[in-house]
């Protein structure tokens, strides 16, 4: 019983270690190849369009409602304490631009595009299409991973900026409709307080998230085993791991950025 459990734990650790090794190999080859090989721009462009188009409606919607609820909560509590809604724009904008827009956008994109990538590459793997790439003179990293990685690095920051704006706009609608805050006040609450570095803080974090989601999803896809069931498992794992890593790395990225004074 106990030896079984220990054996199971040992196997789990070995498995995890092996997977980490494979993953770091993927990361190294991705960066190695990007600098030494012709990039498949056509594939990259296809991925940019696909990831962007697939994700924009969902990320915009998420940000819109996040901005609305932030305004609602801020207005309510500041009314409770100060008898009038103060600094609604400031709270909405800072929360969105520095934290919520980057994190929520990344999480939504992980669930949308990350899952699609893991499922597509996983299906290719279990039907030998990945091996076929190899026999036809290319390589899954060059043909599949690098285009998706680059696409994510370009699209996620843009989606996040779009989320910043839709969220702030959503916040404004609530601030205006529920608390009768005029547009000029809401706007001044934001621009008087916010500086470029606040925006840069959130913006830089999106590159970390883009790298994590794209590499984890590609990795889970091309290491899929075992038919349709395996594809399902990889897809779920890709999304769950991406989401957890986004939240964990968000903390560390914030800490690092703060250390450099970009806060």
């Amino acid at each position: 019983m106990i030896s079984n459990a220990v054996g199971g734990l040992g196997k789990y650790i070995l498995g995890a270690a092996e997977e980490t090794g494979q993953f770091s190999f993927l990361v190294r080859s991705t960066f190695g190849w990007m600098t030494s090989y012709r990039i498949e721009w056509r594939q990259t462009l296809i991925q940019i369009v696909r990831i962007g188009v697939e994700s924009l409606p969902v990320t915009a919607m998420t940000a819109f409602f996040t901005g609305m609820v932030l305004a609602l909560q801020t207005g309510a509590s500041s009314k409770h304490f100060f008898n009038e809604p103060l600094f609604v724009g400031t709270v909405v904008a800072f929360s969105l631009v520095m934290e919520l827009a980057p994190v929520m956008t990344a999480i939504v994109v992980a669930g949308r595009a990350g899952a699609a990538i893991a499922a597509e590459l996983g299906t290719m793997k279990v039907t030998d299409q990945i091996d076929a790439l190899y026999t036809l003179g290319t390589d899954p990293i060059r043909y599949l991973v690098i285009p998706r990685f680059i696409a994510f690095m370009m699209v996620l920051p843009l989606l996040t900026v779009a989320s910043d704006f839709t969220g702030i706009f959503g916040g404004y609608l609530v601030a205006h409709a529920k608390y009768q805050i005029p547009a000029t006040v809401y706007w001044h609450d934001i621009v008087d307080q916010m500086e470029i570095r606040h925006f840069v803080h959130g913006f830089l974090k999106t590159f970390v998230f883009a790298a994590v989601v794209s590499l984890v999803s590609c990795f889970k896809g091309i290491t899929t085993r075992g038919g349709a069931e395996g594809v399902g498992k990889s897809t779920t794992a890709a999304v769950v791991i991406s989401m957890v890593l986004i939240l964990v790395l968000d903390y560390f990225a914030t800490a690092v950025l703060n250390a450099f004074g970009i806060t």
């Binding site: 039907t127 030998d128 299409q129 091996d131 076929a132 026999t135 003179g137």
Partner: peptide, 20 residues
């Protein structure tokens, strides 16, 4: 590796056509 692969054609048992 590329030079080696260039010598070969490979027909997969299940075809392995790119379905996209």
């Amino acid at each position: 590796i590329a030079d080696y692969r260039r010598r070969f054609g490979y027909l997969f048992q299940e075809g392995a056509l790119f379905d996209s």
